[in-house]
Design a protein around this nucleic acid. Sequence first.
DNA 1: TGCCGGCCTTGATCTGCGTCAAGGCGACGG
DNA 2: CCGTCGCCTTGACGCAGATCAAGGCCGGCA
Lengths: 248, 248
Amino acid sequence: MTQHQPFRLTQDCGDCPIRHRAVCARCEPDELARLEEIKYYRTFEAGQTLIWAGDRMDFVASVVTGVATLTQTMEDGRTQMVGLLLPSDFVGRPGRERAPYNVIAATDVLMCCFRRKPFEELMRLTPHISQRLLEMTLDELDAAREWMLLLGRKTAREKIASLIAIVARRDQALRLRAPSGRTVIDLPLTREAMADYLGLTLETVSRQISALKRDGVIELQGMRSIVIPDFRALQDEAGDDADGGFLA
Amino acid sequence: MTQHQPFRLTQDCGDCPIRHRAVCARCEPDELARLEEIKYYRTFEAGQTLIWAGDRMDFVASVVTGVATLTQTMEDGRTQMVGLLLPSDFVGRPGRERAPYNVIAATDVLMCCFRRKPFEELMRLTPHISQRLLEMTLDELDAAREWMLLLGRKTAREKIASLIAIVARRDQALRLRAPSGRTVIDLPLTREAMADYLGLTLETVSRQISALKRDGVIELQGMRSIVIPDFRALQDEAGDDADGGFLA
DNA sequence: TGCCGGCCTTGATCTGCGTCAAGGCGACGG
DNA sequence: CCGTCGCCTTGACGCAGATCAAGGCCGGCA
């Protein structure tokens, strides 16, 4: 809907907002033109549910700005976050009618959407799009498995440290800074959302953040901004071996 | 290496052992012939580590018979299973040199392998192979996310029930039986392996299995065989809503 | 300016699961 | 036939994190 403006996105997106890593990294001009035709923008407010699990999804999309979460819920209300969507992440899947998870905006979100049917058509015509999508999906799968180790085997303190480290790495990957030295990240999640990410309660999250602050591993600026004086120290707390992730 | 023998595999594999769902579902005869050239079989014994995390992987493969697991380990020995490979499952990824996880044979395993480089080449030439692989990877991602809900939010009892239900569903999908009524499944995992799957200890696994048996939800035949008198009851214990999974 | 609502922190207590420890069962080899 | 070894079960106890409860901070709004 919105006309496309010249904002920067991520390194490999260049100036055109649809050049996000999801789809266009290797597109030819005519392919980009075709994508252009089926693309539109949507904005969502913080807290809004973009998509309910089970709903029809007639588009695929990628996040331009903001943060959204994928969550699953049990009948009794227990909920678990199963994906964290940061700028340049892709959501939705070609070939599937219905959304398997709730997608919820954690902050105000701008999405770049493509109508699903024509997108699928385009995929058939341009194999490198599905190859790119395969690579991305494999990366997501790796991230999900890293996360499974976190959920199954890490202590509360390690979980918090891991979450901060993961977001910091992603953040830095986007800005192409090295993940060392003093770092400031923006963590736009409520304590409850973090708890849902980590399989904890919000009280435990709060306590462990306080503990990490007390121990000098992190510092807080306001409510949502975290300073990491020493990234190595944080990684040690996270219990990750070596570089601890495949997100670069 | 081995010459290809006429054993049955799974429904969609037909009689040719390389027609597993991973690669060949839509292959033309000439494509099959090319696959045939780069394919070989390997067997592994129960307990053997097929691949160490970080090792070079010069093949991709799919499981013909037996069960294998993907596991991650922390330096201090805590381990978490992140994938369960049953017959027809695919392992390895085109485009990545090194294996991200340990792959361990839970039972004796027969794998159908393809040399990686020529396989990648073949993928470039036949787009439907990468499309098929994308579908499979998306399914795996869904399964991983289901599993994250299990790890993060379910109780020990629910975890055990879920594991049994998942394996039963997979088992039945392969044999195309309906998942209702009295069912017998073979669960070829030690208590310790189950614990690593579920983020528990082996003692807790043992206790919860005993409890489910005491409560009539399951019955045991020998050590590794489980009878499910009422699948609905099991699903209720697992805390899954409705059909509780995307594995059909 | 003061009230209200959302979000966060902290304390007290409870409990599910982990930890430690002892022993049982079945397979296999001598 | 018995000893050994791998795997499983069961019990006693402790603790990390959940639960319940009270109150603090801050921004929006009348």
